[in-house]
Design a protein around this nucleic acid. Structure first.
Lengths: 78, 78, 78, 78
DNA sequence: ATTACCAATCTGCCAC
DNA sequence: GTGGCAGATTGGTAAT
C-alpha cells in the first residue's frame, strides 16, 4: 500500500530522526563537560554566561555592558 | 450524553481558558510598556536584563557578578 | 543625582514589575486549577492539548487532524 | 598572568564551545531537511508532530490518543 | 518519594 | 521569508 510519496516522506522523517539522535548525543557530551567542571569546583551556571558572552562580538559585548551600567546607575543598582 | 464527569472536566477547562485570557491581556500590557520605552529611546533587551537583576536578592546578585568577573579574567575577557 | 531621564526609566521598570507580578499570580492560579484537575484524576498534559485544540478554529483543527492522519498512514503508524 | 586553574577553566570552556558548534551544525542540517520537505509539499509542523509521536512507545502513544479522544468527546470537540 | 523550582529546548511571533 | 526573540513546555535537580 505504500506508494512512492509515502516512501519519500518516510525517508525524510528517518533522516530527521538520525540527525536528532546525533544532536542529542552531543547535548549529552556537553552535559558531561559541565559535570566535569562542576566536579572541579566551577559554577556551571556562570560558565554558561561566559559561553554566551564569548559568542558575542567583543565590541557588541562591551557596548551592551556599558548600556547596562548606565541603566543600573539610573536605577540605583549597586 | 454529557454526564457529570464531562461537566466537571469542561468547567476546569473553561476556568483555565479564562485565566489564560487574563494572562495574555497582562502580557500585552507588558509589551505596550516596552514599546513605550522603546519610543522614548530605551533598549528593551537591556531593560529585561535589569528586571531580571532586580528580581535577585542584592547579595546574591553581587556574589554572582563577582564570580562572573573572576571567570572573565581567567578567560581574558576585557 | 537622579535626573528626569532616570526617573522615567525607573517608572517604566516599576510598571513592568507590577504587571509581571500580576502575570505570575495568574500563572499560579492556572497551576492550581491543573493540580485540582489532577486530584480529580484528570491528566494535565492532555488537558493542555485540549486547551490548545480549542484555541484553533474548528475548520483549521479538522484540516490539521486530517493531514496528520494521512502522514500517520504513510508512516504506518497505527 | 594565567595560572593553571585559569587554563583548566579555559580548556573546559573551549571544549564546550566546540561541541556547541557541532550541535548547531546538526541543528542546521535538520532545518535543511525540513526545508527540503517543505519544497516537496509537506507540512513541516505536522512532520514535527509525527517525529514526536514516533519517539513514544506504541502502547503509550495509543493510550495517550485514547485519553485525548475521551476528553474531546467530553468537551464536544468534533 | 514527592514536589517545587530551575534551566534548556522547542514552538510561535514579530521585525527586518 | 528568514532570523532572532520571547514565551511555553518539558525534563532534571535539589530539597524536604
Amino acid at each position: 500500500m505504500a506508494d512512492a510519496a509515502d516512501d519519500r516522506l518516510r525517508l525524510l522523517i528517518e533522516r530527521i530522526e538520525r540527525l536528532e539522535e546525533e544532536k542529542k548525543g552531543i547535548g549529552d557530551d556537553i552535559k558531561d563537560v559541565y559535570n566535569e567542571a562542576k566536579s572541579a569546583g566551577y559554577d556551571a551556571k556562570i560558565m554558561r554566561q561566559i559561553v554566551r558572552l564569548r559568542k558575542m562580538k567583543p565590541d557588541d559585548r562591551r557596548e551592551m555592558e556599558a548600556v547596562l551600567d548606565v541603566y543600573k546607575n539610573a536605577l540605583g543598582i549597586d
